[in-house]
Design a protein around this nucleic acid. Structure first.
Lengths: 138, 138
DNA sequence: TATTGTTATACTCTATAACTATA
DNA sequence: TATAGTTATAGAGTATAACAATA
């Protein structure tokens, strides 16, 4: 009845639980800037000084490319994000976060990672967690 | 421009990235059983032999209680979940996963935690990850 | 008077398919 | 012929507010 790899299933389950637990703060945090949860994830994914084609953003958010158009439309109209033509392929539009968007992003990230949660781990453990999550993402 | 607690922000960011990466498989996995991503998370949250009031499920999924009604309606009509009256409070309805639901759950969990991902960590590291995530969830 | 679950409503997200402009 | 982004559409999720039953 269980999974073949019980530890992997446990890990995924706990990971999802922690994500939902933190996600509970998204509506409150987003309300201050009038940003929906999905828009917050766009800002989170668009790291400053790391432009990203729209298609790649769709991959990272695990959604269809057609969703990105509308999400970016509203963020762009509010000055948080910019569309740039790609220099190598004229079909591609590259997304950049603006200075204003980067400020909003930093504020959002900070609210989403309340020290009260992650301080339950020692500094050494926090480093290990970050390193392990990074390896799972490769 | 960064967060006050950079490590906590990194951890939250990586956590969200990993969640989205795994979530990319949800539509494919769910399609086999005709389950939406949200319905999959209901089944994942409802661990076998651990009945849960509807309100508590709403908390765990970080959504409004009114959403749970519809989600559970469809899962119940397909025999994956049961509503039971609470013995102590007649306002409360307790949710149980059925035998059929538990089989679907095990299949989903296995597909969502492909060994190819978690095998990038040693057994010792997997144990530590599970232990740390558990502590973050307390 | 407060709480649990439900209903009705409106809004957003989401995938699908068809379209354009490039490649 | 294939790909990146857009548009139109319909379906599902979501929060809000009002409601019934119970505490």
């Amino acid at each position: 009845m269980g999974c073949r790899d019980a530890r992997a299933c446990d890990a995924w389950h706990l990971l999802a639980r922690l994500f939902f637990k933190q996600r509970a703060h998204l509506p409150t945090v987003g309300a201050e800037l009038d940003l929906s949860p999905a828009q917050i994830h766009v800002l989170r994914t668009l790291e400053p000084a790391r432009p990203m084609p729209m298609g790649r953003l769709a991959e990272r958010l695990a959604c269809d490319a057609s969703n990105i158009t509308g999400l970016v439309d509203r963020l762009e109209s509010r000055g948080f994000v910019r569309r740039r033509p790609s220099s190598s392929d004229r079909r591609v539009k590259v997304l950049e976060i603006t200075a204003s968007g980067a400020r909003a992003r930093a504020m959002l990230m900070e609210r989403m990672a309340p020290p009260a949660v992650f301080e339950r781990l020692s500094v050494r453990e926090q480093q290990m967690l970050v390193e392990m999550l990074g390896r799972l993402l490769d």
